[in-house]
Design a protein around this nucleic acid. Structure first.
Lengths: 164, 164
DNA sequence: TTAATAAAAGATATTTTTGTCTTTTATTGA
DNA sequence: TCAATAAAAGACAAAAATATCTTTTATTAA
């Protein structure tokens, strides 16, 4: 290998330098979309997938899959055809965001061990158990106390962003 | 498609029903390994990768990669050859677990937006911003206040598990 | 009843994460 | 100095997550 080559050759990175969020990207798109659609529903409008994807800055076909899943689970409403689109009925607007998260990311975030142990429990705790429980509880509290429609007014008034 | 087939055919799952933890699997292995090695270091022993992998129930070659990375970043000590292995010196035992997490999973968990927005901030908040900040702060607090050696006594006394 | 619209479903592709295998380098003790 | 040991490095493989493209189905309005 030449000197010049060596200058531009780095240790092969097994580990991407690394985005690791609390929620999956899928779940992030889902939550942003849900808040966007909720806001429109508050104004009595249905929204098409194209508008949603543009407004929350997500890949349209991928978001379509996500909303299809939520729709199959009756967490969001949709109608096909002209003037169709996605919306929330009154009942759905009052659902907790936790329902969306658990539909997409599962329940591990509410119940899982911080070190990834299957049998971690009060009687068989990992070292982080007690502290991690507090974190989990706070996340659970946040997601249970946030309804899908909670931010409608704030969104309409432009107080919040859902884009980028 | 026959009736019997249809009984066993499910909607194609785009979404795995889903493990989504706070930390990556890589980071979970790293934390478990670190606690295990720390405990041994407290007893004045070095440990080989094989023993570590067995004791924390992780794939050995994958864990090797993880510890190599930590070693390159001087977060863990190692020596090659007979009687070699991994260990922590006194300084490293006092490092916060946060250093391990940020080396493996990056800093997004400490600073990132819950909805995945790049420009989410106090002045341009996402709907979850305030509540999510509390979660992030608690995680940060937990990881900054947990030193690598913090659980040595508890581990030696068998109060904690690192396996499964 | 038909053309246009928009979501649902299906199939496929790409990227990232996780996991494995082989070769090299450093260290030790005989 | 040589054989054995154990980590480091490199190359490769499998699985999961993310993303795209095409076809089908339902609805509406003209």
């Amino acid at each position: 290998m030449s000197f010049i080559d060596s200058v531009y050759t780095f240790a092969p990175e097994t580990f991407a330098d690394d985005y690791m969020a609390i929620f999956s990207k899928t779940c992030e798109y889902a939550m942003r979309a849900v808040f966007y659609v909720a806001q429109k529903s508050h104004e009595g409008q249905k929204v098409g997938i194209k508008e949603i994807a543009e407004q929350i800055n997500s890949p349209e076909p991928f978001l379509a899959k996500i909303l299809q899943k939520l729709s199959r689970e009756r967490l969001i409403q949709s109608v096909k055809g002209p003037n169709g689109g996605f919306y929330f009925d009154a009942v759905s607007l009052n659902r907790p965001l936790a329902d969306i998260v658990s539909a997409i990311d599962g329940n591990d975030i509410f119940t899982g061990c911080g070190l990834g142990l299957t049998y971690c429990s009060e009687s068989n705790p990992c070292p982080l158990h007690d502290e991690f429980k507090k974190v989990r509880n706070q996340i659970t509290h946040m997601l249970n106390n946030t309804t899908i429609g909670k931010f409608n007014m704030g969104l309409i008034k432009g107080k919040f962003t859902l884009n980028k």
